[in-house]
Design a protein around this nucleic acid. Sequence first.
DNA 1: AGTTGATATGAGTGCTTGCTTATATATGAT
DNA 2: ATCATATATAAGCAAGCACTCATATCAACT
Lengths: 120, 120
Amino acid sequence: MDQVGMNNIDQVARLFKILSDANRLKIIFIIGKNKRSVSELINETGLSQTLVSFHLKVLRDSEMVDTERKGPFIYYRLKNTGLVDLLYAFNQYAVNRKEEMETGMLWPCPPWFVKKTSKR
Amino acid sequence: MDQVGMNNIDQVARLFKILSDANRLKIIFIIGKNKRSVSELINETGLSQTLVSFHLKVLRDSEMVDTERKGPFIYYRLKNTGLVDLLYAFNQYAVNRKEEMETGMLWPCPPWFVKKTSKR
DNA sequence: AGTTGATATGAGTGCTTGCTTATATATGAT
DNA sequence: ATCATATATAAGCAAGCACTCATATCAACT
């Protein structure tokens, strides 16, 4: 039907789902092309230890990261650092789009979001 | 802290969330750099009319698409077709990663997923 | 062995969200 | 006006998922 895409859509969607959480993205950005210990991630994100560990598990389960123990510390690094470049590309896209937007803001998904007790 | 990223993380995450559904991705891929009527999308995706409309609303609310009425038909097109190229880049990334993977499959997010009544 | 610091795991909770069923609106033709 | 076709909206439900609290593991030091 088309030369690319179509067949791997589920995979790509799942990848996007993994990337669709701000805290996870933060973690990935901080790890970048280097390695970071959990402690460092906790400090630099400002998130709780449990929450960081939680998200790291997601990244581990999805085989996005490798771990390496050094004494009591566990260092995380991206299995494929090409991701970082892709993320920057996406970031750039988001920045550009943001300017074109009427609301000045990327809108989240479901319709009812709009009407529900305008939470937050 | 870093030259890019960090500040727009929420925006990027939201963008990924929009893209994190296989059906929505399918629709976006089909629209591509052209325009498609809802009917065409229904046919080419095989999804129900309601479901297609539902996802199109998400894309409209997030200002990803423009619409144009032609008689009874409504045509959708991407506001910024650069997205298509990014998607292909990600698709390529997913394909490459897939080969490196132990499971041969990108794993979805939450841990309990694993244990729950292995649905579907 | 006991303690401390670093990290992981499990259960529980509430908001999120994809989907369906039913219904509405809009357009064009008769 | 009525009808058929194209598309959108509303309400409800079940599952997904981010988060927290409590507890467990593991390494290093005493």
